[in-house]
Simulated assay, not measured.
Amino acid sequence: MKKLLLLFLVAPILVWSQTNFEKGEKLFQAKKYNEAQVILEGVLKTKPSDIKTLTYLGEIAAYQKSWVKGAQYYKKLKELKPTEADYFYKYGGCLAMRAVEVNKIKAFGMVDDMKEAFEKAIELNPKHIPARWALIELYLHLPGLLGGSESKAISYSNELAVLSPVDGYMSKGRIDEYFERYPAAEKNYIKANEIGKSKVTFQKLYNLYLNKLKDPKKAQELKRKFEA
């Protein structure tokens, strides 16, 4: 009798939660993120460990640049699904974006958690390209005393080259550009663009010509070929 009574009490809550989740999901898919957020946060109160709800809310937080909220959602997700590489990567990504907003002392205090998250993503998925890019940027921007290292950035760039030649050349170009070795960056971006022939590879080389090498003639010639 008690079990039957409990079923009658719980069933309406479960139905309400499911119905509202579907509404929130449809709003999310329609890119009505603010409306979806309100509904999905309500769903989360009744189902605090629901993977799909947490995932949608994490994506919404990232879209809204609410990095603290995003980190909280992805932290919960990586605890619930400790074998899912993307949850670690996105957790680290939210921390990295938050670090840009706070003062240097707070930012440096977040570095170990970022590294650990990105490295774990690679451990779980050895072919994880975005996590390697994140570590390259991290090692480029960190001061040497806090672990910044060109050699470590190059190491991850070499790993990218094995997984994706385009990303390999792009990351080498990025490292050269960061250290103002613009002619070397140009060579790597040219190779990346020859292979990739994408808007991303074009834009990197175009921006280098225009903003760093100060060569508008090369920039316009590249643009003409890309748009032909």
Results as ranks from 00 to 15, higher is better:
178 Y>A: 05
183 P>T: 03
66 S>W: 06
106 K>R: 14
113 D>T: 03
88 F>L: 01
78 K>D: 00
112 D>R: 13
192 A>C: 03
153 A>I: 06
89 Y>K: 12
88 F>N: 10
180 E>Y: 07
133 W>D: 08
113 D>E: 15
141 H>D: 09
105 I>G: 00
155 S>P: 00
64 Q>V: 00
136 I>S: 06
193 N>Y: 14
73 Y>P: 07
105 I>P: 00
184 A>F: 03
190 I>N: 01
76 K>L: 11
134 A>D: 04
105 I>T: 14
58 G>K: 09
159 E>S: 06
81 K>P: 00
108 F>P: 01
185 A>N: 10
67 W>V: 04
137 E>H: 13
68 V>F: 13
87 Y>I: 03
67 W>E: 04
169 Y>K: 13
95 L>D: 05
141 H>T: 11
125 N>T: 07
132 R>Y: 07
176 D>T: 03
151 S>E: 15
180 E>L: 10
90 K>C: 00
109 G>I: 07
115 K>V: 01
109 G>L: 07
63 Y>K: 14
167 D>Q: 14
187 K>F: 05
96 A>T: 11
163 L>F: 09
76 K>A: 09
80 L>G: 09
109 G>R: 10
58 G>F: 12
148 G>N: 02
57 L>D: 05
84 E>D: 10
96 A>F: 10
191 K>W: 06
85 A>N: 06
96 A>R: 08
119 E>S: 05
105 I>D: 10
99 A>S: 13
160 L>N: 05
124 L>D: 01
139 Y>M: 02
145 L>Y: 11
151 S>H: 06
180 E>G: 00
88 F>T: 02
157 S>G: 03
195 I>S: 04
61 A>S: 13
109 G>Y: 08
177 E>G: 00
157 S>R: 12
80 L>V: 13
155 S>T: 13
131 A>M: 10
157 S>V: 05
134 A>Q: 12
115 K>H: 06
141 H>S: 03
76 K>Q: 15
107 A>W: 08
166 V>P: 08
161 A>D: 11
165 P>V: 01
150 E>V: 13
63 Y>W: 11
80 L>C: 05
116 E>Q: 15
75 K>A: 07
166 V>G: 03
